[in-house]
Structures are given as structure tokens and as C-alpha cells.
């Protein structure tokens, strides 16, 4: 008799669970069937009164009914939960194609970008990044670089002179001198920065542009070392192997002095308008540091020597981005600057 009523309770409750549509209804079923005062609990309490031969069987029956109901309740509850969650989620539809509010990210100037790239590159090779003033003395800009007054090499760079006798640096080379004075040998340094030349502005000429000066002072620095560094650097700058050549070039602060050409990256050396059909593009002046320059900066050329080079940062930027008008770089036009 007890067996039957347990089974009936179980099947009735399971049916109610199945038909419940709300969490409240489900809770009512749970209280009715599994509650502390419910029939199953009641039956459990009365187990003691049963004859010993029935106890094990009824006990088993009760446990199985409880387990089945608990499982059914849990399963149903999960079903009801996810249903209401789904309804909420459905209501929370967003148009993800709408643009995000707030300002867009700004843009670094292309010169800054390339300059940073080069700074990182040189730093990784153990070069210090140095700065010097934009207004320089005649001494640092010329004399200390082996370009005394009335030296015709001064004509190579049209200089902006300032009232009071100072000048706007015509190259970043004075930072070499300041670097040698401040840090002494051995020295590996670069100096990117703004330089000035008194020339009229057109699509390919600027009175204000950027250079990157580099120098290495150590013992027994040779042309072969210079070549190695230049090749390594240029490969990193252009993200490919480059063929370079040195030819004689005259700069009073180096001896011997070179012009470094790279094989034209456009035509690969077969000749095109960019390289004026020569297959080569003049890229940077360099050389072994003139012993007079070392001496003037307090370095004994008998013990130390080195190489120096000057990279046209502005020119490199123009090459990298194929910019055909130098005036854009200092024109402040966002339509240009936002492309970088």
C-alpha cells in the first residue's frame, strides 16, 4: 500500500514539474513533494514503524523517488532560468555596426615615426641617443668640425646667422662634438634633430629639415666596420638586404670621407627615373672621423678613432612613404598628417 502511494506521489509530482511554467509553480511542487512536511518526509519518519522486512525496500523506494524528483526539479529550473535569460538577452539587442563614441586615435608625425624607429634600432645596437641645441655657436657647428672660418666648405651649407653671432645649426654634427666632450670614448651615439639651411623652399628643398647624425668611437675602427654598420642599419631601415657602395666624398670632419649609395630599391640597379638611370641612389655621407676633430674634442687620435655618418631623416621619410612634396611635412595639414 505504501509502495503504491509513493509511486503515485512520484508520478503525480513529475507530471506537475513537467507542466510548470514559472519558477513559483516549480517551487510549489518542491514544497508539496520534497518539503519537510511533505509526504515523502512523512513517510521517512514512519519508517521505524515498518516491519523490518519492509524497511530496506521502502527506504530504497523513497530515496529513488526523492532523487528523481530533485533531478526533475533541477532540470526544469534550469530550463525556466535560461528561458528568462534568453528573453532578457533578446531584448538587449545592440547595433554593433554603430561607430564607437569618443575621439579617434590621433596620428604621430611621419618624421616622429621614422625617428623613433631609428632610435630604437640604434639603441638596440648600443648607441646612445643624444640631443643638442638648435641654436649653436660657430665653434660647435663649424670650427670643432674642422671647418675653420673662411674655409670654402662653409659655402657647402648656407647658414642662417643670428643677431649676436650664433647660428642655426646647419647639421646635427655639432652633437657629435658635444657627445665626445660629455661622454668621452668609447662612444656610440646618434643625434636626430632639426637643422636649418638658408635655401628657398620648393617641392624638394626646405630650409628646415631633419637629420640623424651617428658616430662610433673605439679602438681600431675601420672602413670595413663602417660598412658593416651601414649595411646592418640600412637592411633594418628598409626591411630588406641592401647593396651599398662607398665612393669618395669630401666633408672636412671625416678623412677619408665617403658618399654612401644604395642600389636603387625601385629598379634593383637596372636604372629608372628615381635613380636617374644610374642604378644607385645617394643616401648618406660618412667617413672615418678626422683626427683633428677628435683632438679638438679632447680625444687622443693615437688611441681612439671612429666613424661618423649623417642620415637625411626627412629624405628617408619621403622615400619610405613616397612623399613627393617636402612642404607637406611642416605644413600642418591634417589631411596629410592623418594618413600616418
Amino acid at each position: 500500500m505504501l509502495d503504491q502511494s509513493i509511486q503515485e506521489l512520484e508520478s503525480r509530482s513529475l507530471a506537475r514539474i513537467a507542466s510548470a511554467t514559472t519558477l513559483e509553480e516549480l517551487e510549489a511542487v518542491r514544497v508539496d513533494s520534497l518539503g519537510r512536511k511533505g509526504p515523502l518526509a512523512q513517510a521517512g519518519k514512519e519508517m521505524g514503524k515498518l516491519p523490518p522486512e519492509d524497511r530496506a525496500r521502502i527506504g530504497k523506494l523513497l530515496n529513488s523517488a526523492r532523487q528523481n524528483l530533485e533531478q526533475a526539479l533541477e532540470a526544469k529550473k534550469r530550463g525556466l532560468d535560461s528561458g528568462s535569460l534568453n528573453a532578457r538577452l533578446e531584448a538587449e539587442w545592440l547595433d554593433v555596426t554603430l561607430p564607437a563614441p569618443g575621439p579617434r586615435r590621433g596620428h604621430l608625425h611621419p618624421i616622429t615615426r621614422i625617428q623613433r624607429e631609428l632610435e630604437d634600432l640604434f639603441a638596440s645596437l648600443g648607441f646612445a641617443v643624444l640631443d643638442g641645441p638648435e641654436v649653436e655657436t660657430e665653434y660647435y657647428n663649424f670650427d670643432a668640425l674642422n671647418i675653420p672660418a673662411d674655409h670654402p666648405a662653409r659655402d657647402m651649407q648656407d647658414t642662417f646667422w643670428l643677431d649676436g653671432g650664433n647660428l642655426l645649426r646647419t647639421h646635427t654634427s655639432p652633437v657629435q662634438v658635444r657627445g665626445m666632450e660629455r661622454l668621452g670614448p668609447p662612444l656610440r651615439m646618434i643625434a636626430p634633430g632639426r637643422v636649418f639651411r638658408n635655401e628657398s623652399v620648393d617641392a624638394s628643398h626646405e630650409h628646415t629639415f631633419y637629420q640623424l647624425e651617428g658616430m662610433m668611437i673605439d679602438r681600431d675602427v675601420s672602413v670595413a666596420h663602417l660598412l658593416y654598420f651601414m649595411k646592418t642599419l640600412l637592411a633594418a631601415i628598409f626591411h630588406r638586404d641592401v647593396t651599398v657602395r662607398l665612393r669618395p666624398g669630401y666633408f672636412p670632419f671625416v678623412e677619408p670621407g665617403f658618399e654612401l649609395d644604395i642600389q636603387c630599391l625601385i629598379c634593383g640597379g637596372s636604372g629608372c627615373p628615381v635613380c636617374k638611370q644610374s642604378g644607385w641612389v645617394e643616401l648618406l655621407p660618412c667617413g672615418l672621423v678626422n683626427p683633428n676633430v677628435l683632438r679638438m674634442s679632447g680625444i687622443d687620435p693615437g688611441e681612439w678613432n671612429g666613424f661618423a655618418f649623417g642620415l637625411g631623416l626627412t629624405r628617408l621619410v619621403m622615400m619610405r612613404y613616397a612623399i613627393d612634396d617636402i612642404r607637406y611635412l611642416q605644413g600642418g595639414d591634417l589631411r596629410f598628417l592623418e594618413q600616418f
Binding site: 648600443g126 668609447p186 670595413a224 666596420h225 658593416y228 665612393r247 677619408p256 670621407g257 665617403f258 672615418l288
Partner: peptide, 29 residues
């Protein structure tokens, strides 16, 4: 040094093989 240039340019700078310098590794200032 001026004579280095005379010899170097005439023998041809393209005859010089790039060589990595042997210098101590150092963290730059």
C-alpha cells in the same frame, strides 16, 4: 689619414668586405 683616402679610393672601396667590430657590449646612457 689623407693617404688612407688616396690608397682607399684607388684600390676601390668596393674591395673592402664589411666586418663586425669587436667591441664590448654596453647599455647606452
Amino acid at each position: 689619414d689623407d693617404l688612407v683616402e688616396e690608397v682607399g679610393r684607388m684600390v676601390g672601396y668596393d674591395s673592402i668586405t664589411p666586418v663586425a667590430p669587436l667591441v664590448p657590449a654596453a647599455v647606452p646612457p
